[in-house]
């Protein structure tokens, strides 16, 4: 799952080498993924009106649901 978050994020940015993902599990069992990207790429992963990050969340949520998990994705500065 973390691999997928990282791969999709790297596909969306100009500087794939600067993409990193950290994850931890919440008490309720949901997974939290914290995505960080190069400063110039933040707009690319968020998209106009948040459209791209929401699309990421939608697709990742479906993949997590397949494993019976809930997930959250945050873009950190």
């Amino acid at each position: 799952m973390q691999d997928l978050v990282e791969y999709l994020a790297r596909s969306l940015v100009d500087s794939p080498d600067e993409v990193s993902v950290e994850s931890y599990e919440e008490d309720d069992g949901s997974m939290v993924y914290e995505l960080s990207v190069a400063e110039d790429d933040v707009g690319k992963v968020i998209g106009r009106g948040g459209r791209t990050v929401n699309a990421l969340r939608c697709v990742l949520r479906a993949c997590a649901a397949k494993e019976g998990r809930r997930m959250l994705l945050d873009v950190v500065d």
């Binding site: 999709l8 596909s11 969306l12 940015v13 100009d14 690319k44 998209g47 459209r51 791209t52 929401n54 699309a55 990421l56 939608c58 697709v59 479906a62």
Partner: peptide, 22 residues
């Protein structure tokens, strides 16, 4: 893959488009 009202496939389509042409 399709999701409720096509939400998942539409989101994937958006990501594929952004990945192709960013």
């Amino acid at each position: 893959l399709i999701g409720r009202h096509g939400a998942t496939i539409d989101a994937l389509q958006h990501l594929a488009m952004r990945a192709a042409f960013h």
